[in-house]
Amino acid sequence: MSEGPLPVPTSDIRRTELRLRVISALLLVPAALAVTYVGGVWFALGAGACALILLREWSLIVKAQNARIACALAYGTVTVAVIAASAGEVAAGFALLLVATAALALSAVAMGQRHILWLAGGVAYAGSSGAVLVVLREGTAGLAVIVFLFGVVWATDIVAYFVGRRFGGPKLWVRVSPKKTWSGAIGGFVAAVAIGWLGHQVTGRAGMGVWLLFAAGLSVFSQIGDLFESALKRHFGVKDSGHIIPGHGGVMDRLDGLVGAGVLGYAVAALLTGSMVDPVGQIISMRGY
C-alpha cells in the first residue's frame, strides 16, 4: 500500500520562499526605481495601476467583487482621484474620495450590506495611496522624497524579516500577526534610522536629528500599515492578498508598509503645514532645508 508523498521539510519551504522573494525583489526594485526616476505621467500610471490592484485585492478579501455597481463606482473613483492628483487638483481628488467613500458606506448601512461597507474602506485605502504617491513625487524634491520613503520602508521590512527569524522572542501582536516579533520590529526601526543617517551623510542638508526623526516616524507608520493589512486579512481569514508576486503574495502584501508610511507621513506633513498640494515642500521651504 502506497504511503503517499513525504512531507516537504519546513526548512526547504522557507528556503524556496526566500529564493522567490529575492528573485522578485531583484526584478521589481529596479523597475520601481526607474519609474520613480522618470516621474511624470509614467509614475502616475504606475501609482494608478498599483492603486487599482490594491482595490481589486481589497474587494476580493472583503468578498465584494460581485457587487458590480459598487465596484464600478469604486474603480472609477480611485482612477479619477489619481488623475486629479497628477493634474494638481489634489483637494478635488481627496474630496471625491471622501464623497464616494461616504456614499458607499451610507448605502451599505441602509441596505444592510456589510461587504459594501468594507468596500467603501477600500476606496479610501487604495485611492489615498495612489494619490499621495503622485503628490509626493510631483512636489518639491519629489524624487528624493520618494527614494527616501522607499529606502525607509524597504529597510524596515527586510531587516524586520531577517531579525525576527533569527532572534524570535515575544510576539508583537499575536492575535493579528502570529509571526511578527518585537525583535523584528525593533530591528526594522533601527535599520530605518540608519537610512536617515545615510540620507544626512549623502545630502548634507538639514540637521541629523531631522533625518533621524523623519526616518523613525516613517518606520513606525510603515509597521502600522503592515499590521493594518494583517488585521484585515485575519478578520476575513485570508493568508495572502493575492498571488501576483512570487514569494510575496499580492501587491497589497508588498505595499502595505509603503501605504502606511506614505499616507500617514503625508497626513502629518499636511496637518503641520496646512497644505495638501506640496506639504513636504512647504516644510523644506519653511525650515530652510
Rank of each mutant, 00 (worst) to 15 (best):
G4S: 05
L6C: 05
T10A: 15
S11F: 07
D12N: 12
R15P: 00
E17T: 03
E17M: 04
E17H: 04
E17N: 08
L18Y: 03
V22P: 04
V22Q: 03
I23F: 07
A25G: 13
P30K: 10
A31H: 09
A32T: 04
Y37E: 10
V38D: 07
G40S: 08
W42E: 06
L45E: 01
L52E: 07
L55A: 06
E57V: 03
W58G: 12
L60N: 08
L60T: 05
L60W: 03
I61M: 15
K63T: 00
Q65R: 14
Q65E: 15
R68I: 11
V78Y: 12
V78Q: 10
T79C: 14
A84L: 15
A85T: 04
A85V: 04
S86P: 04
A87M: 13
E89W: 15
A92V: 02
F94Q: 07
L96N: 08
L97I: 15
V99R: 14
A105I: 01
A105W: 05
S107I: 14
M111N: 14
M111C: 10
Q113W: 13
Q113L: 13
H115K: 09
H115E: 13
H115T: 13
W118I: 03
A120K: 11
G121D: 10
G130N: 05
A131M: 14
A131E: 04
A131Y: 04
V134P: 02
L136C: 02
G139K: 10
T140L: 02
A141I: 04
A144Y: 06
V145Y: 00
V152A: 09
W154D: 07
W154G: 09
W154L: 14
T156V: 03
I158R: 06
A160N: 01
V163R: 09
G164A: 12
G168Y: 10
V174W: 06
R175N: 11
R175Y: 06
R175L: 11
V176E: 07
S177H: 04
W182C: 06
G184S: 10
G187V: 13
F189T: 07
F189P: 15
V190P: 15
A192S: 03
A194C: 14
W197F: 15
G199R: 02
G204S: 12
G207P: 01
M208K: 02
V210D: 10
V220R: 06
V220H: 05
F221N: 02
S222K: 02
S230K: 06
S230D: 12
A231S: 06
L232D: 10
K233G: 00
K233T: 00
I244H: 12
G249Q: 00
G250V: 04
M252T: 00
M252E: 01
D253L: 01
D256P: 01
D256R: 02
L258K: 00
L258G: 00
G262E: 00
V263W: 02
L264T: 05
G265L: 02
A270S: 07
L272G: 00
V280N: 03
G281S: 12
I284Y: 06
G288P: 09
